[in-house]
Simulated scan of single mutants.
Amino acid sequence: MATAFLSTAITFLPSRLSSASASSSFPLTTPSSVHTHRDNTRKLLTICKAVNDPPPPSPILTKRALSLCSITTFFFSLAGQGGSNANAAILEADDDEELLEKVKKDRKKRLEKQGVINSSNEEKAYLQDVVYKLSKVGQAIDNNDLSAASSVLGSSIDADWVKKANKAFIKLSSSPEEKSQVDTFNTSLASLIASVTRNDVESSKIAFVSSASAFEQWTTLTGLLGQLKGL
């Protein structure tokens, strides 16, 4: 566009000079007239050159500056991601160490408990007697023979076999869950003895199921499930 404007201005210049010389009362060759025309010509050429020349590039918007900005942003982004990944790796390593430590502690506890169980032959004999008695009581209740069930259970929770069972419970119970199952067993057993004494078949069945379930759950938690016959 600037080139076209310059061409138009140069083409227009001679006609304007000719028109001005024809309408003037002074001859074209006078010094003042020649000087005026030269000044006008210089002004027009100056204007055309200013229009045709492109403005100097702004240092902020040059391609080189934009490229540098883009590269800098890219590397800062990579640096930020690298820092995040490094932090994540550290956290994961800490989590792995904590998990490994927990696994080691749990394994140590299991081995210690297994050692206690293996050395508790007397307590396991008491618990085997519980399995035997519960089996007999269950058969008697199923046959509605509560007198037979009463002869196996005894008249109260203070029966000798119950005391021996609780001795084993105390020695082999370590976790809150195991102790909770022991409490449930004793409570249900007391209800079972009372129901059998009253000759209440339905209540006896409910109390028996609760007692047997609590005992089986306790043996599962302690690791004795596979070491007692009849379970």
Results as ranks from 00 to 15, higher is better:
A2H: 08
F5L: 13
F5C: 04
P14D: 05
R16G: 13
S18Q: 11
S18V: 12
S18M: 07
S24T: 03
S24G: 00
S25T: 09
L28F: 11
L28N: 10
T30Y: 10
T30E: 10
P31G: 09
V34Q: 13
V34M: 15
H37S: 12
D39N: 06
D39F: 05
N40C: 09
K43G: 04
K43M: 12
L44A: 09
L44G: 00
L45D: 00
C48V: 11
C48Y: 01
C48T: 10
K49G: 07
K49N: 13
K49A: 14
V51R: 08
N52R: 12
P55M: 04
P56G: 08
P59E: 14
P59W: 09
T62D: 02
K63S: 11
A65G: 02
L66A: 08
L66M: 14
L66R: 15
S67Y: 08
L68V: 08
L68A: 12
L68M: 11
C69E: 14
I71Q: 14
S77H: 02
G83F: 06
G83I: 06
A88H: 05
E98Q: 10
K102G: 00
V103F: 08
V103N: 08
D106G: 04
R107L: 06
K109D: 06
Q114W: 07
V116L: 15
S119F: 07
S120W: 01
N121A: 07
E122S: 07
Y132C: 01
K133T: 02
V137Q: 05
Q139P: 01
I141E: 00
D142L: 13
N143W: 06
D145Y: 08
L146R: 04
S147P: 00
S147Q: 11
A149M: 03
S150F: 10
S155E: 14
D158H: 03
D158P: 01
A159M: 02
W161E: 07
K163V: 10
K167T: 15
A168Q: 04
I170F: 12
I170C: 02
K171C: 03
S173H: 02
S175C: 03
P176Y: 00
E178V: 01
K179S: 12
Q181Y: 02
V182F: 01
D183K: 14
L192K: 01
V196K: 02
R198W: 05
R198F: 09
R198V: 07
R198Q: 15
D200I: 02
S203E: 11
S204T: 05
F215V: 07
E216H: 09
T219A: 07
T219M: 04
T222S: 10
T222V: 13
L225C: 01
K229S: 09
